[in-house]
Write a protein that binds this DNA or RNA. Structure first.
Lengths: 132, 132
DNA sequence: ATACTCCATGGAGTCCACTCCAGGTCAAGA
DNA sequence: TCTTGACCTGGAGTGGACTCCATGGAGTAT
């Protein structure tokens, strides 16, 4: 598969694909006789993985070690497992922040909805007067 | 409340607080006679809000308009409501990416756990051979 | 042979969100 | 009065993650 096809398949630019490779979060891609990258299905799995985790906000740096360990062979299973569990914890933490923020927005939204309907904000009578 | 106290209360630096003010996502803070910032409880509500949303990954730019509208008075309720709903949708989208990534990690983790226990990866026999 | 498109590389540039710094003011305490 | 510590400003610097660019090679169609 060409770099163009892969970039379209995953909705990222060719530059980003080359950057991921140089950064070491996807493997070095085999080349055609002419020197063009020729992605194998195994490579696509890696691309899918990093795109997925990057979109969730996982730092590039956190993904480097995983590729490195994977290429060091089977004896790195325990380390890889630990790494994945660490990454999962990061995401769990992020998820909490996300739901906190959503709860905050929901609360404000519900008040604004009432305000827009009744023409006045429900907390205008309150002592605490932090507008917004 | 001094900038130091506020920074400690919310776990962000004083520089960040000044930056947020200059960026226009918290209001301009009143000063003491000597020129030092003197945060009021209303300001603290704003700080709490932006810290919460920033931690969830909401871009600074997306927060600017909300303060601006809030300072333009009550007739901006509908616009503010719309803005909050937009922000909520952003977070919902981000939440999906997060759960996608977590599912992916969970799947890999469960396979690695089995692998570490049994000494071999469960997908070694499979045709698809994307290691990792 | 020429044109066209795709791809390669190294390196510079961009954007975001801080973060740091120099140089100065201000208030309180020894 | 002198020192100390917190605070101020404007502006430069940083780190992460791309993104863009100039230049040049390869493959295909006319």
């Amino acid at each position: 598969m060409t770099i163009k096809e892969v970039s379209e398949k995953f909705g990222i630019t060719q530059d980003t694909l080359r950057y991921y490779e140089k950064a070491g979060i996807i493997p070095e891609i085999a080349r055609t006789s002419g020197g063009a990258r020729n992605y194998q299905s195994e490579d696509l799995e890696w691309v899918e993985h990093v795109v997925c985790l990057r979109q969730a906000g996982m730092p590039v740096e956190s993904l480097v070690e995983y590729l490195r360990l994977s290429q060091k062979g089977d004896r790195t299973f325990p380390e890889r497992l630990e790494l994945l569990q660490e990454q999962r914890e990061r995401l769990t933490a992020q998820q909490k922040k996300l739901t906190d923020a959503m709860n905050r927005l929901d609360f404000k939204i519900s008040r604004y909805q009432a305000a827009v309907e009744t023409g006045r904000l429900s907390w205008e009578d309150e002592k605490v007067n932090a507008k917004g």
